[in-house]
Design a protein around this nucleic acid. Structure first.
Lengths: 333, 333
DNA sequence: TACTGTTACGTTAGCGCTAACTCAACACAA
DNA sequence: TTGTGTTGAGTTAGCGCTAACGTAACAGTA
C-alpha cells in the first residue's frame, strides 16, 4: 500500500500554509492565479488525493449516497441501479448498494448503517416500511428520494418518483378492448405492494369504463417471478378456461403466465392475449415477444440521482414525479 | 436531520472518560463488566451511533469495500454482486458499487475515487486493465480480489477467483461427442476477454482429443449479448450450414444463437445442439430450456467477499481459486 | 517491608481537513 | 494625513474518534 500524500506535504513543498493549498484544490478564492497554478501542478506531481474521511469529518459532507433496493438481481432494480450509478459517476458521487430482500427488518438495518456512514442522501426503492417508519427515516436523512412509494405528508427534503400505475392499467385494458377481449384477468403481485394496489385500481376502473362487471375470480395475487406467473396462470386457467386476456403485474409474471398458457394448449396471442409491465430485456428475448407497458427504468434511476443531488445542494424542493409508461405493442397481444 | 450523539455526550452522562466509553462500545478489555453494561445501556438510551468518519480517520479502517463490475445489469454480474452484498451485510461491511461499462478509462477512474474513499479492499470483476495497470492497482490497495482475471505475479494482498474455462469447454465438447455431433462451432465473446481465450483453448483441446481437426471457419467472435449471438449464428449458418452443435460464450449468446437457428428453420436440439455457459435465470425461462455449464455465481460473490475480509484481517493469504462449473443438461443439447 | 504485576481507568496527542477569524500590504478617496 | 476597502495570505480551533502511554489502587510474593 502506498503512503498517502497529505495537504501538509503539499503545503511544505509549496512553502505556503495548508489553508492556501486547501483553497487551491477546492477552487475557492483567496489566492493569486499564479500561486494556484503552482500548487495544482505540485498536487499533480506529488499525486496528492484528498482524504475523504478527513474532509467528511470537517465538513460533514461525503459525496456518497445510499441506494436501497429489494434485490439488485431483479432486472427492474438492476436497470434503475444502473441509471443511478451512471448519473452518480457523472457527478462524482459514489453509491452504497444495499439489498433488503423485501424484508422490512433488513431494510431498517440497512438504513441504520447507511446513516452511520453519514451519507448525504438515500434513494429508497419499493420500500416495505410502514408509513410511520418511513416518516422517521425521511426526517433523519439530509435528503431522500422514494422510488415506487408515496408518502402522505410532503417534506422539504423528500422527492418521490412513481410510475403512473393507474393509467398504465387503464391503457392495458383499453388495448384489450380494442382486441375485443372481454374476459380479462389480472395476475397481481404481492398484496403488500403499493404499485400492485394501484394497478388493481386501474384494472377495476378500466373494466368499469367498458361496463364489464368486476369479478374477483379473475384476479390473482402471486410472487413477482416467472414461477409465480406460472402457478397463478395454472390456477386461473383451471378456474376460468374462458379467459382470453391476461394483464400481468410485471414482465416476469407475464412470461411465466405465457408459458403456462402454451403448456396448457392455449395459443398466445390467439387464444389468450398477454400484457406485462416494465419492458425488461427479457420481453424482447422471449418468443412471442412480449407486449408490455414500457417503463423507462434507466431514466428513472438517473432522474432519482439528479433529484437527490439537487436536494442535497438545497436547490431541489419537495416534489412528486409521475412517470407515464407507454404501451409497446409486440407479439403477445 | 437529527443532531448526532457523540462519544463525549455519553462520557459526560456516564461521568467517565471518552476512552472508557470507546472501550465499552468496541468490546475491548480494560473496564469492569458492570461499568460496561452501564455505558452500553446509556448508549442505547441516548441513541448513540459512532461516526464512521471520525473512526475512519483515527484508524484508517472503514468497513467498506468497493465492488467494480462492467455492468450490474448483466445477470452474470448481478448475481455475483448479490452474493457479495449478502456476505458483506452479514459481516457488517458496506459496498460501493461502480460500473465500468467495459471501459478501461472508466475503470481506472472508478478505482481512483474508490482509493480516495480509503476503502479496505476491492473486488474487481472482469477487469479490462492491462497487466501493468492491474499490478499498480494491486499494490495500491490494502486488499484485492480479482474475479475472472488472473495475474502472473502473486501478491500477499491478492486473491483471484476464476472459473475453470478450459475444463468447462472440454466438458461441453465431450457432451457433444456423446451426442455424436462432430461439426461443432464456437461462438466466442469479445477477443480481449480472458475467459474467452481460455474457452477457445479448451475448445481446441477438446477437438484434438476427439481427433477432429480445428477449423477457424467454425469459430466466431461477437458481443456477449443475445443480439451478438443472433448475428454470429446467422453468419455462421450461412457459412457452414452443416453445423450441428454450437458452444456459446455465455447463455445470452446461446439464446440468441438458438433463436436464429430456429428462425432459419433449424430445430434445436435435433438439427443443432446448443450449450451455453453461466446458467443465468434466463436459461430455464427460455424454451427449449438451455443446456449450460452451471457456474455458481452467487457462491462466487460470497466467496469473493469472505476472501477479501480474510485478506483485510491479515488472515488470508495469496490464493487462486478455481471454480469448477458443472454441466446442467436440459433441452437444448 | 519492599518489590512486582495486574486491573481499571484517565490523559495526551493526533488522524487530515476546513470554517472562521486575523492580519499585513496596498490602493484610493476625502 | 487619515480613514476605508480589498486582496492574499496565515493562524487557530475543532470535527469525533482511538492508539499509546500514564497512573492509582490493590494483590501477591520473597
Amino acid at each position: 500500500m502506498i503512503k498517502r500524500t497529505t495537504l501538509a506535504d503539499i503545503a511544505k513543498a509549496a512553502n505556503v500554509s495548508m489553508m492556501t493549498v486547501s483553497r487551491a484544490i477546492n477552487n475557492k478564492p483567496g489566492l493569486s492565479d499564479e500561486l494556484r497554478q503552482h500548487i495544482l501542478s505540485l498536487v499533480e506531481e506529488m499525486g496528492y488525493r484528498p482524504n475523504t474521511f478527513a474532509r467528511g469529518l470537517a465538513t460533514s459532507q461525503t459525496t456518497t449516497i445510499g441506494l436501497v433496493v429489494p434485490d439488485n438481481t431483479n432486472p427492474f432494480f438492476a436497470q434503475i441501479a444502473r441509471g443511478v450509478e451512471d448519473a452518480a459517476f457523472e457527478n462524482l458521487y459514489n453509491i452504497f448498494l444495499v439489498n433488503t430482500n423485501e424484508d422490512a427488518v433488513r431494510e431498517t438495518a440497512a438504513l441504520e448503517t447507511l446513516w452511520q456512514k453519514g451519507i448525504d442522501g438515500v434513494i429508497l426503492c419499493s420500500s416495505r416500511l410502514s408509513g410511520q417508519a418511513l416518516e422517521y427515516q425521511v426526517q433523519r436523512f439530509p435528503a431522500i428520494v422514494l422510488v415506487n412509494r408515496e408518502l402522505k405528508q410532503s417534506h422539504a427534503n423528500l422527492i418521490t418518483i412513481n410510475v403512473n400505475d393507474h393509467r398504465s392499467a387503464q391503457r392495458v385494458l383499453q388495448h384489450f378492448m380494442g382486441l375485443d377481449r372481454r374476459v380479462i384477468a389480472y395476475i397481481g403481485g404481492p398484496a403488500n405492494s403499493f404499485s400492485n394496489q394501484r394497478r388493481l385500481d386501474g384494472y377495476k376502473n378500466g373494466l368499469r369504463s367498458a361496463e364489464i362487471p368486476y369479478n374477483p375470480q379473475l384476479v390473482m395475487s402471486t410472487q413477482p417471478t416467472t414461477e409465480g406467473g406460472r402457478e397463478a396462470a395454472a390456477v386461473l386457467l383451471r378456474r376460468r378456461p374462458d379467459v382470453n386476456a391476461i394483464f400481468a403485474y410485471n414482465d416476469l409474471v407475464a412470461v411465466g403466465a405465457m408459458q403456462m398458457c402454451q403448456e396448457l394448449g392455449k395459443r398466445v396471442p390467439e387464444d389468450v392475449a398477454i400484457i406485462g409491465v416494465d419492458d425488461i430485456p427479457l420481453a424482447t428475448i422471449i418468443r412471442p415477444q412480449l407486449t408490455t407497458m414500457h417503463v423507462p427504468l434507466t431514466h428513472i434511476g438517473r432522474l432519482a440521482m439528479r433529484a437527490l443531488i439537487d436536494l442535497i445542494a438545497g436547490e431541489g424542493s419537495s416534489a412528486a414525479y409521475q412517470i407515464e409508461p407507454e404501451l409497446f405493442i409486440r407479439d403477445s397481444a
